[in-house]
Amino acid sequence: MANSNLPRRIIKETQRLLSEPAPGISASPSEDNMRYFNVMILGPTQSPYEGGVFKLELFLPEEYPMAAPKLGRICLDILKDKWSPALQIRTVLLSIQALLSAPNPDDPLSENIAKHWKSNEAEAVETAKEWTRLYASGA
C-alpha cells in the first residue's frame, strides 16, 4: 500500500499535527492513504468567517517535500514558486488561517474562500457542529 514506505518526515509531521494541533486547525490523514489529509480551519474570531469552518483537502505528492502539497484550487504563493522544502503542512495551514483572519478583498484566496463559504453555508454550519463535537470530545 502507498503507506508502507511513507518517508519519516511525513510520519513525523503527521504525528505532530495530531499530538499538538495548531489552535483552530485540524488536519487528519485519511485511513487508506496517509498522504491525503482532511483539513478544517475554524473561521478566526472577529473575521467575516467567525463561527464558520473552512474545509479543505490536502494531498502530499510523491515529490513532497521537494514539491509543495496540493490544495485544490487554492491560489497561494507558498504553494507555487515560493515553496521551500523547509516549510511544512502546519506552516501552509497557518498561512491560510492568517489570510482568513485578515481577508484582503484583492486576494484571490479570500475571494475563493468567500465564494465557497457563501455557496455552502448550510454545509458549513453542519461541519462546524461536527467540528465542535470532535473538538469538544477531545480527539
Partner: peptide, 9 residues
C-alpha cells in the same frame, strides 16, 4: 485584478 474585474475566476 480585484473585485472590480468581477471576481477572479
Amino acid at each position: 485584478h480585484g473585485e472590480r474585474t468581477g471576481g477572479f475566476y
